[in-house]
Design a protein around this nucleic acid. Structure first.
Length: 572
RNA sequence: CGGGGCGUGGCUCAGCCUGGUUAGAGCGCCUGGUUCGGGACCAGGAGGUCGGUGGUUCAAAUCCACUCGCCCCGACCA
C-alpha cells in the first residue's frame, strides 16, 4: 500500500490523557481514538493488527476442532435470570429495555446463550464432545475503565465453550485449550506465564490465567523463580515469614488494658512496643447478609476470595460501621474474638498454635493481651491470608516474588453450574439422563495488542512482533525526487508484494527524518531504506526491534525481507 | 460511589490567583519557494461560542453556583 493514500494520524506529542505506555503509543501512532471513557474506535492500523491476532486465534482454535459461531450481543433478561447472573452481575452489566419495556442486556460473556443453544440441540452422549467459539464484542460497564485498551467497556473477546459427558472429557477439552492458548500467545510473540487462578463469578472448580508481566497490569501474581509455582495473588498459597517476636510463654489469662486513641494495628504496635505480628487482626465481613469475623495475624492481609470460598458466599463485603457497633458494642479498631457468640469466627492458619497475643477488647479504647487462639476463643482455622512477595514457596521454600500482570487469557472448568441451572442434559449409552459438564475459555484480543506494546517498545515507539504488526515491512525512499531512488524503491516494493509480504511504500513527499520517525513509532518490524547508495545498487535493511542495519543488494532486498519475516515466525 | 486533578484552534500548553484593548505560543494544517539520511527553512494564510448553563459586574477565559466530559487514586471487577 502507498503510505500517502492511507489514514495514519500520528502525533508528535503524547496526548495528555494517556499515562501507560501502550495507551500513549496507540494514540500517538494513530492506532486508536477515544470516543468516551473506556470506549475506543479502532482506526486502520489497530484494525489490521487486531485482524492478524484474530487470524492466529482462529487458526489455533480451528486446529483443536473448535467450531466458530457468532452469537447475539443483545440478550434477553430471561436467559440471565435462569442462571442467576441477572442479579449477580449487578451494575457491571449494561441493561436496556425494548419498545415493549422488556428487559435486555448486552452480553458480557456467553455461557447463557451457548448453554441455551446446547440444551435445545444436544440430546445424546454421541454428540459430545463439542467445542464452540466466537470472536465477538463484549460489553462490561466497568466501574473504572483505564489504561487505554487494557480495561475498557467494549472489547473483542474470543470466547469458547466445551461440552463433555464426564470430568475426564472436560479435562481433555481443558487441556486442548491450554495448549492452543500457548500456541496462540507464542505466535503473537508474547512473553507470558500461566498461573493458577480463581474462578470468580464464572463459577466452577479449576482455572488458569495467561499473564503478561507489566507494570501497567492490575493483577498481582505470585511466582517462585526456583520451582516455577505461579498463582494469582487472590488464590496463591505461600508460607508467611515467622512472627517477628516470640510469644510470651505460659498459660496466661486475657487481660484488658487501656489504649486511648489507638485504632490501627500500627498504632497499637507502637503503643505496646510489640511487632504487628504479635497482634490478631479482626475483620468483620458480611457474607450473603450474615456477619462473620475473620482473624489474621496483624501484619497479614485478608484474601476476600479465600474467605468467600470458605463461607460459600455469593456476595461478601466489609461490615458497615453501624453494623459493627450493633454486633460488637465497639468501633472497628477495638474489635476482637473473645466473647463473640453471635457469628462464625474464622481464623487464618498463621494463628494456629500462637499464644498470648494482642487483640481488641470489644470496648472502645481497650485491647486485650494474653489471648490464645483455641483457648480464649474457638475459631475455625482456614487459609484466609493473601499471599505476598517475600513469602516462602510451599513447594520448595524459596522466596516468591509478586508481579504486576495483564491478563490476556483465562480458562475455566465450569463443571455443572450452567447445565444444572439451565437444564442441559444428554442421554447416556444406558439411556440415563445426565447433565453435561462444561468449560469456558476467553482471550482478550485488544489486550494482546496492548500487552505487546507494553512488552516491546523503546523511546522511538512500538516494536511489535512481526506476526501482529499492522505491516511487515516498509520501503522508504529517502528522496522521492531522486529518480533512481524512486525507481529502486518501487521495484523493491513490487518485489515484496510478489512475495506476498504486507508491505508499505512510504511515497510521501516528506523529509527522511519524518518517515523514519513515523515508521519507528508505528512499529513496522522491517524497513528497507533506499538512499544515495541506490545508485550503486545497494539499499539498507533495518530490523526495528534490534536496530540492526545492513546493506544488501537492491535486487535481493525483497527476498531478504521475506526470509526475515519467515524466520521471525520461529523466534519464539 | 468516595478523594484528587483537568477542560482555552487538530496536538502540547500559557493567560485565570489580582476581571478591562483585537485571546496567545510551539507543533500540526493550507499556498508558494528553497531543501532532502533521523520530526528542515523562508514568506504568506486558515482555524478558537475559552466544555455547557445560570449568576455577580459597566465589563467574565478570569469571580460564584450548578452541570457535563475526561484523567488519576481508592472501593469494585470474569
Amino acid at each position: 500500500m502507498l503510505w500517502s493514500k492511507l489514514f495514519i494520524p500520528t502525533l508528535r506529542e503524547t496526548p495528555a490523557e494517556a499515562d501507560v505506555v501502550s495507551h500513549q503509543l496507540l494514540l500517538r501512532a494513530g492506532y486508536i481514538r477515544q470516543l468516551s471513557t473506556g470506549i475506543y474506535s479502532y482506526l486502520f492500523l489497530a484494525q489490521r493488527s487486531l485482524l492478524k491476532i484474530i487470524g492466529i486465534v482462529r487458526e489455533e482454535m480451528d486446529a483443536i476442532g473448535a467450531q466458530e459461531m457468532l452469537l447475539p450481543a443483545l440478550n434477553p433478561a430471561e436467559l440471565w435470570k435462569e442462571s442467576g447472573r441477572w442479579e449477580v452481575m449487578g451494575d457491571n452489566m449494561f441493561r436496556l429495555k425494548d419498545r415493549f419495556h422488556r428487559d435486555l442486556c448486552l452480553g458480557m460473556t456467553h455461557e447463557e446463550v451457548m448453554t441455551s443453544i446446547a440444551r435445545g440441540e444436544l440430546r445424546s452422549y454421541r454428540q459430545l464432545p463439542q467445542i464452540w467459539y466466537q470472536i465477538q464484542t463484549k460489553f462490561r460497564d466497568e466501574p473504572r475503565p483505564k489504561s487505554g485498551l487494557l480495561r475498557v467497556r467494549q472489547f473483542i473477546m474470543k470466547d469458547s465453550y466445551s461440552f463433555d459427558v464426564d470430568p475426564a472429557g472436560l479435562d481433555v477439552s481443558y487441556d486442548k485449550h491450554h495448549r492452543a492458548y500457548c500456541r496462540i500467545f507464542d505466535r503473537c510473540g508474547l512473553d507470558y506465564m500461566v498461573v493458577e487462578a480463581h474462578s470468580g463469578a464464572m463459577g466452577g472448580s479449576q482455572s488458569h490465567e495467561f499473564m503478561v508481566v507489566s507494570d501497567a497490569g492490575e493483577d498481582l501474581v505470585v511466582r517462585c523463580a526456583n520451582c516455577g509455582y505461579a498463582a494469582n495473588l487472590e488464590k496463591a498459597v505461600t508460607a508467611p515469614a515467622p512472627p517477628a517476636a516470640a510469644d510470651p510463654e505460659g498459660n496466661l489469662e486475657p487481660e484488658e488494658f487501656h489504649t486511648p486513641g489507638r485504632k490501627t494495628i500500627a498504632e497499637v504496635a507502637a503503643f505496646t512496643s510489640l511487632p504487628e505480628s504479635s497482634q490478631i487482626k479482626s475483620l468483620v465481613m458480611v457474607a450473603d447478609g450474615k456477619p462473620a469475623l475473620a482473624l489474621l495475624r496483624g501484619d497479614h492481609a485478608l484474601s476476600e476470595t479465600k474467605l468467600q470460598g470458605v463461607l460459600g458466599a455469593a456476595e461478601l463485603r466489609p461490615a458497615h460501621p453501624a453494623e459493627i457497633g450493633e454486633w460488637f458494642g465497639a468501633e472497628a479498631g477495638s474489635l476482637g474474638p473473645v466473647g463473640v457468640m453471635n457469628m462464625r469466627i474464622l481464623a487464618d492458619r498463621a494463628l494456629d498454635g500462637r499464644r498470648n497475643m494482642i487483640c481488641g477488647a470489644n470496648r472502645d479504647d481497650y485491647h486485650l493481651r494474653n489471648v490464645t487462639p483455641g483457648e480464649d476463643f474457638r475459631p475455625e482455622f482456614h487459609d484466609l491470608r493473601q499471599a505476598a512477595g517475600g513469602d516462602s514457596c510451599v513447594n520448595c521454600a524459596a522466596p516468591v516474588e509478586a508481579l504486576k500482570t495483564v491478563e490476556i487469557g483465562h480458562i475455566f472448568k465450569l463443571g455443572y453450574k450452567y447445565s444444572h441451572s439451565m437444564g442441559l442434559n444428554v442421554l447416556t449409552e444406558e439411556g440415563k439422563e445426565i447433565p453435561v459438564i462444561m468449560g469456558s475459555y476467553g482471550i482478550g484480543i485488544e489486550r494482546i495488542l496492548s500487552a505487546a506494546m507494553e512488552l516491546f517498545h523503546d523511546a522511538d515507539g512500538a516494536a511489535l512482533p512481526v506476526s501482529i504488526a499492522p505491516f511487515e515491512a516498509v520501503v522508504t525512499p529517502v528522496n522521492k525526487a531522486d529518480a533512481t531512488q524512486w525507481k529502486v524503491a518501487l521495484d523493491i516494493y513490487e518485489a515484496c508484494r510478489s512475495f506476498g509480504l504486507d508491505v508499505l511504500l512510504d511515497d510521501r513527499d516528506e523529509r527522511p527524518g519524518v518517515k523514519f520517525k513515523d515508521a519507528d513509532l508505528i512499529g513496522i518490524p522491517y524497513r528497507v531504506t533506499v538512499g544515495k547508495k541506490a545508485a550503486g545498487g545497494k539499499v539498507e535493511f533495518l530490523e526495528r526491534r534490534s536496530s540492526r542495519v545492513r546493506d544488501v543488494d537492491a535486487g535481493d532486498a525483497a527476498a531478504f525481507v521475506a526470509e526475515s519475516v519467515r524466520s521471525s515466525r520461529h523466534d519464539r
